[in-house]
Design a protein around this nucleic acid. Structure first.
Lengths: 236, 236
DNA sequence: AGAGTTAAAACTGTCGACAGTCGGCAATCG
DNA sequence: CGATTGCCGACTGTCGACAGTTTTAACTCT
């Protein structure tokens, strides 16, 4: 009963309508087809997508749990908008998670993990040379995701994934600004070197610097493009 | 699937049906009226609660995002069961979050925060003297929640809340085991002392010790009561 | 003309129903 | 007697509809 390694299920088993709608909404929000604070009409969405409202509602709840949408009772779902404080909080939590992860990883830095991370840095450098801002950011996030993965704590990885959804919420704002490919490369090689050294202190320094740079970059980008400090958008 | 003894209809009167169902399910799961790995039938739940399936489905999705349920396509929702590895991961992430929080808190330890935490320790000590295991644990968690709260990062607090839902999944298993009231008290006074000292190193030591004790306590409790290592319950 | 009031339109929350699918059971075949 | 195949029941995924509420727009009065 052994199946071929390449999953044939992918061809046969079309995924749920809920997941399809969720994917569509996620992409639409990330690509700013729906602007922050904008209200999403269930009926209009279901009409546009050719499905009923039930899958749309469930998909919206899914995205709400991921922090991409906010629901107001009897009002519907709104695209989440991050203000400056929330953005700081997101990066602070990211620092918290990645500090922990890199130190755990340093404790059990297998050759496999080393190889995977080095390969991903190569891919990242390649992407950094292009003009595709979205791809640069995705490959960057993928590198960090790999770090979290090889740190060996699934729950930690899930927390990181939850966070990246919110990151993507505003990160497209800065895809236009072009960070120098060299900077990106060195920045990540520093992390690899720190892992090779095996020193917790060095790892911590490296990740602190790395995320600090990323935070400044995003905060600056959001500040320039116009931040969303409208408090009405964020009911408790 | 035996219906919990508490009258269901009484719950369903006031706010969002979805949230009411979610609260009901949460309580039922925490109080082990639904056992880990057990399947929840949408139709039966909706019949028992006197609502239609839509709110039940949405509530189930909510609980899935909180890690209390797991959905299998075309099969339905199952009560999440934590195996030993996942439990370790949960406590590792908790350590990560609380380490960060207590150090942030030490940086901005206002009198208000100090007072609130001291008061909560009093409440906790009072609860520790009783035989109400659930209340002991809730007051304990509330103390830690306050720490996270006064650390001043809403997103960090949310991550912690997400985690506590999973903690409660298995924590009731040990409500019977009775930790000495003195131990609980000293354990938390240590944290207050560390915060008063203002030393990051001391804070870190205190929280490491504190959570280490809690982890050992829970892991031991789960090990005794019978762990759920059934891999079938955890599809990717 | 502007502010307040009221009526209509649109939308969300909830419901019951239908169809496709999954798991189990029995009958059949080797 | 064991394995396989076809069938049956139960359940999930999805849909369209109704009721209550919110928003919008028209309308009246000053």
């Amino acid at each position: 009963m052994a199946l071929p390694t390449t999953a044939p299920k992918a061809f046969i088993q079309q995924q749920n309508l809920v997941e399809q709608v969720a994917d569509y909404l996620t992409q639409a929000i990330i690509q700013q087809h729906f602007l922050p604070g904008e209200r999403l009409s269930e009926v209009q969405l279901s009409r546009d997508l050719g499905v009923s409202r039930a899958p749309v509602r469930e998909a919206a709840r899914l995205l709400e749990s991921r922090g991409l949408l906010i629901s107001k009772p009897r009002r519907g779902f709104f695209v989440r908008a991050l203000n400056a404080v929330e953005l700081e909080d997101v990066f602070d939590l990211r620092l918290c998670l990645e500090r922990h992860a890199i130190q755990r990883l340093a404790e059990c830095y297998t050759p496999e993990a080393k190889r995977a991370l080095e390969q991903q840095v190569e891919v990242l450098c390649e992407a950094a040379a292009t003009n595709d801002g979205t791809r640069r950011i995705e490959e960057d996030l993928q590198f960090h995701r790999l770090m979290l993965h090889y740190a060996g704590n699934e729950r930690l990885l899930r927390a990181f994934d939850d966070l990246t959804h919110e990151l993507r919420l505003c990160i497209t704002l800065i895809t236009k600004t072009h960070e120098a490919p060299d900077t990106i490369a060195t920045s990540h090689f520093m992390l690899l070197d720190a892992l090779n050294s095996g020193s917790p202190a060095t790892c911590r320094e490296a990740i602190d610097y790395h995320i600090g740079v990323a935070r400044d970059f995003v905060v600056k980008g959001v500040g320039e493009t116009g931040d969303n400090t409208d408090e009405d958008l964020f009911p408790s």
